[in-house]
Design a protein around this nucleic acid. Structure first.
Length: 620
RNA sequence: CGCGGGGUGGAGCAGCCUGGUAGCUCGUUGGGCUCAUAACCCAAAGGUCGAAGGUUCAAAUCCUUCCCCCGCAACCA
């Protein structure tokens, strides 16, 4: 009895900004995005029972009820707050957090803001929270993540949580029921979805039936909000906490982080187009111990399709069905006498224990290990067929009983395999069982008899069809599925639960630089300068600190050319600088100008003057 | 001392917490088989487990130091 919820978190500043950028109102923006996710889940055969959007009216209403309840309990209070605000992260920082006017998290500039806000008494729950984490070992998983949160909680004081935003600053949110000038903080709204869904996406009383949730499956980037904010909110509401919060890792692509600017984003829709949903699902769950970061590559995809899917389960079905056609008249024969008792025992043992083993694995979310266990059975069957050699048995009529056993055993193994792979590859499972003639109806839940090993299978006509997974030949391996262009404004969700991709606005096309007049150019004062000394800026990757002479004047310039040039190589050289650039600080060091160098993002070479000229000479 | 991850046969990884003959997948080589999607089965080759030191009867595993790689962050004024 499972209720599988997924959905979208649609409020907040970033959504508002993205919508504004696209020139549409936030709701329209969200309405455009949501179907992309729904379609993708459909194509991937994700079996979610409901899809919640935090802009659903019933959700909003429920959030307001909760806010009112906490307000009535005096767990929400109003106070004025002054601090450094980071728009990107939608959060305030304290004075000591902020370095050089930059957000310590995203390093974007922060602005000083003072405003009245409502606060949730989160800090009051610090001890209770620590205690809860300690007494519930599996509450946060994997363990490394648990340690991370616990460490943070035990060394720092948990403050109260500002849960309101004045409408003057942010209007895209759920209005506070007790103060119409404010909307609630996006996380306060979003986290509530786990409970609100049970209020309106399922007939009541589903809340009693499904809460507390067995698991919140989230990305590792949103662990703190779930483990700390949400837990304290539930405590304040006197609701039980979920059994487990599991923070999964991220995918890299060919060893590199996926990013739109790199243009290496894997578009799941393209992967489905090219390889099929089942193969894609298989790879994602097979490649990495679930929870850890993993690396995705096209070649790994092809390798695993060929060796595990085509040569593995696909070929096992193919060879078994062909033999049943040829040696048994197209019907699965009843078992006869043992052919190879030793291997048959091994198969029986593996097959009998498989369902329970997989069950435990699903409970522990060890998907990769489950697939390994399934594939062990496949390997065992291949070995069995090879050694029993049905094609030889078929030549001697007196070996008939043994032949029947071999074919029957292989067929029963495939029957069990179809059930076993169903959670991973639903389409394939259905095809397999259909070709095998047992035709399971996977739209209903799997019964224990379907996964039972000791069943009588006799006289079942098979229906051999197309290969489950055709091999991918090497010519296709070079085909690029990873998008080449850095422009896909597609939804590329990584975390399937919340915070999917609310910030995906269209990337603006790079505009051709407009022409400027000579007057505008003359505003820029270029001068020659002689490098007196140069040294690396400690801890920087490519910054050099230069002392240069402009004749009468001496300047300090910080330049990002350290990847191309060694400091010693520059001393004594005459270079060109922008002399009237407003000074700026780089890593705390003041730079009073800018050196000219060729190159785009990477420095290729410094600009110099063809003839010897005095330092400080004007360049135009 | 910015934060984090990692260095194990040709490639990709597991093992490390809870020391005790180094394992998996792919690849390579040789053989077998012919039911099967040039597939499947068997066998072999191939590793000073980044380096050094320490603890121990015993170290890939624990401790110390160092080197290297990769993310993130800072950074191209």
């Amino acid at each position: 009895d499972v209720f599988f919820l997924t959905g979208l978190d649609e409020h907040g500043q970033k959504v508002q900004q993205a919508a504004a950028k696209a020139g549409i109102d936030p709701q329209t923006h969200c309405d455009k995005l949501a179907p992309q996710f729904k379609d993708l889940w459909n194509r991937l055969n994700i079996s979610n029972d409901a899809f919640l959007r935090t802009t659903d009216p019933q959700h909003k209403f429920f959030v307001q009820e909760i806010l009112q309840e906490l307000y009535d309990k005096q767990l929400i209070y109003q106070d004025s707050y002054t601090g450094w605000y980071c728009t990107f992260d939608e959060r305030f920082w304290t004075e000591k957090d902020v370095e050089n006017g930059l957000c310590p998290d995203c390093k974007r500039p922060v602005e000083k803001l003072s405003e009245h806000n409502y606060f949730f008494k989160m800090g009051a729950y610090q001890d209770r929270l620590i205690d809860y984490f300690k007494t519930h070992e599996n509450f946060i998983r994997p363990e490394s993540r648990r340690n991370e949160v616990l460490g943070f909680l035990q060394t720092q004081t948990l403050g109260d949580l500002s849960i309101s935003r004045p409408k003057s600053r942010l209007s895209w949110g759920i209005e506070l029921p007790f103060d119409k000038d404010y909307v609630t903080y996006v996380w306060f709204d979003a986290l509530v979805n786990y409970v609100s869904a049970l209020e309106y996406l399922r007939p009541t009383p589903s809340r009693d039936r499904y809460w507390p949730a067995s698991i919140h499956l989230i990305g590792k980037d949103i662990l703190t909000t779930h483990a700390v904010y949400w837990s304290t909110m539930l405590m304040a509401l006197n609701l039980p906490l979920p059994d487990m919060i599991f923070a999964h890792g991220w995918w890299t692509v060919d060893g590199e982080k996926m990013s739109k600017s790199r243009g290496n984003v894997v578009d799941p829709n393209k992967m489905i187009d090219e390889f099929g949903a089942d193969a894609f699902r298989y790879l994602l769950l097979r490649e990495v111990p679930f929870g850890q970061d993993g690396d995705f590559s096209q070649s790994a995809m092809v390798t695993s399709i060929n060796s595990d899917l085509a040569n593995g389960i696909g070929n096992l079905l193919s060879r078994t069905l062909t033999m049943i056609e040829r040696f048994a008249g197209g019907k699965i024969p009843a078992a006869g006498t043992p052919a190879l008792p030793e291997i048959e025992k091994k198969i029986a043992a593996a097959a009998t224990s498989l369902p329970d083993k997989l069950d435990r694995g699903f409970g522990a979310l060890t998907f990769r290990e489950n697939l390994q266990a399934i594939w062990e059975l496949i390997a065992l069957c291949d070995e069995y067929i090879d050694k029993a050699a049905p094609w030889k048995l078929a030549k001697n009529p007196e070996d008939g009983p043994q032949l029947k056993t071999v074919l029957n055993t292989a067929a029963r193994a495939l029957r069990l395999l179809s059930v076993s792979i169903y959670p991973f590859m639903p389409q394939t499972a259905a095809q397999l069982s259909q070709q095998l003639g047992v035709s399971f109806d996977f739209s209903r839940s799997i019964t224990s008899s379907q996964s039972q090993w000791d069943v009588t299978l006799a006289d079942i006509p098979i229906a051999k069809g197309a290969s489950l997974f055709p091999r991918i030949e090497s010519s296709r391996q070079g085909a690029k599925t990873v998008s080449e262009s850095p422009t896909p404004p597609q939804a590329t969700p990584v975390a399937p639960v919340l915070r999917t991709s609310t910030t995906l606005a269209a990337t603006p096309a790079p505009a051709e630089p407009a022409q400027i007049t000579i007057d505008e150019f003359m505003k820029i004062q270029l001068k020659t300068a002689k490098v007196l000394s140069a040294e690396r800026v400690p801890k920087s990757e490519k910054l050099l600190k230069l002392q240069v002479s402009l004749g009468a004047e001496q300047r300090q310039i910080v330049a990002g050319i350290g990847k191309k040039y060694e400091p010693e190589a520059l001393v004594g050289k005459t270079i060109v600088i922008v002399a009237n650039l407003k000074p700026a600080k780089l890593m705390g060091i003041e730079s009073q100008g800018m050196v000219l160098a060729a190159g785009d993002s990477e420095v290729r070479g410094l600009a110099t003057i063809l003839e010897e000229v005095d330092p400080g000479t004007k360049v135009k």
